[in-house]
Nucleic acid binder design. Structure first.
Length: 379
DNA sequence: CGAAATGATTTAAG
DNA sequence: CTTAAATCATTTCG
């Protein structure tokens, strides 16, 4: 069975097509070879090994090898030309950054980054919330992370296996045909590129999942809860006692936030909502206004609580509102505005009333935040 | 259950 | 950045 190397004999015809005695046209030769190659796939491993061995020992092998070398010489330039092109992976970079920021990039550690990000992303977060919601959120985040890493690991292992397989194959083939290490490396690079794109898809979908989760859990609109009585009271108190200029300064906001047990952002939100809604129709707030102005009046005249009124001296008697003691003008203000709204011809009457009031009760800024008449006006 | 109330966000302007 | 205005999503109320 061993066919030791013999000096190449003069010239036997090319590796005769074994299967076609009648001699088909030479063009079908390659087709024949292809067919055989395909057939190898179906053969058992033993057969393949045997065939390989036979091929290795074939007497024509050196000749074939040299021919292949020649062919390669001619095509090597083209191979070089196809050198890997560095794909623009700016997107990948972005995804990586995001995953890193989301605490996704470390395998099985505590979701530290995610938790921090979550806290940072909820400015209006109540101090008490966070326990239950966050555990749920973190559990789901961890689930995503786990899936992500198991998939990643799977892909990486598959990539390694496939790379090794291809490398072995090429090394095996290098006995038959010339295969340079650079070519193997090139092939490995291609394989890695393919797996890289798969990984990118994985990262992208992970990012999407995280974003969806975030949108679902961290959007405070979905988990809104009304303020406590205390907070509402504090806010309304300030609002109606500074009706002429309901724009608390930053320090005042902090004070209100502290007293109401809410955040400064929430105070700002509240005042924004309150101003616009009060302006929208003041009639609705008349009762509330009366209540709170009366309350502040009581607070201002009678020292009810020991600490209650002592701390905010700048708030209790607003210096900007002028000298009126809050209850009288405040009340009158409400009445007048209400009347103005109820006038059949609100345009003139309302403006006149408002201007007269403004003139009487100082408040040059008074008219500023109430530019429009009451929305009763329909034209 | 539907409407009102309400806190938060988005959009646009300064 | 702050704010007015519009809008959203939820909670509360009748």
């Amino acid at each position: 069975m061993d066919a030791p190397q013999r000096p190449p004999r003069p010239a036997p015809p090319p590796p005769a097509p074994r299967r076609s005695p009648p001699g088909p046209p030479p063009g079908s030769n390659t087709g024949d070879v292809l067919q055989q190659i395909m057939a190898i796939t179906d053969q058992s491993l033993d057969e393949a090994q045997a065939r390989k061995h036979a091929l290795n020992c074939h007497r024509m092998k050196p000749a074939l090898y040299s021919v292949l070398c020649e062919i390669k010489e001619k095509t090597v330039s083209s191979i070089h030309g196809i050198q890997e092109v560095g794909p623009p992976d700016a997107q990948l970079l972005r995804l990586d950054n995001m995953l890193l920021a989301e605490g996704m990039s470390r395998p099985e550690k505590q979701g530290r980054g995610a938790s921090a990000a979550a806290n940072a992303a909820t400015p209006g977060g109540h101090p008490n919330e966070g326990g239950l919601e966050h555990s749920d959120y973190r559990a789901k985040l961890s689930q995503i992370r786990q899936l992500y890493h198991s998939e990643l690991e799977k892909y990486e292992q598959a990539c390694r296996e496939f790379t090794m397989h291809v490398t072995n194959l090429l090394q095996e083939q290098s006995r038959i045909r010339p295969v340079s290490p650079a070519e193997i490396e090139h092939m490995v690079g291609i394989i890695h590129g393919k797996f890289h794109s798969i990984q990118m898809q994985l990262k992208q979908s992970t990012c999407e999942a995280v974003l969806a989760l975030r949108a679902r859990f961290l959007d405070a609109r979905r988990k809104r809860q009304n303020f406590s009585k205390q907070a509402t009271e504090v806010l309304n108190e300030y609002f109606y006692s500074h009706l002429s200029n309901p724009y608390p300064s930053e320090e005042t906001k902090e004070e209100l936030a502290r007293r109401g047990g809410i955040t400064v952002s929430q105070v700002s939100n509240w005042f924004g909502n309150k101003r616009i809604r009060y302006k929208k129709n003041m009639r609705k707030f008349q009762e509330e206004a009366t209540i709170y102005t009366a309350k502040t009046a009581v607070d201002a005249t009678e020292v009810r609580g020991p600490g209650r009124q002592a701390s905010p001296p700048s708030m209790s008697h607003s210096s900007s509102s002028g000298p009126f003691p809050l209850t009288g003008p405040g009340d009158a203000l409400i009445r007048l505005q209400t009347l103005a709204c109820l006038q059949p011809t609100p345009r003139e009457g309302g403006l006149l009333a408002q201007e007269r009031l403004a003139g009487e009760a100082n408040a040059s800024r008074f008219t500023r935040w109430q530019p429009r008449q009451c929305p009763l006006r329909r034209i």
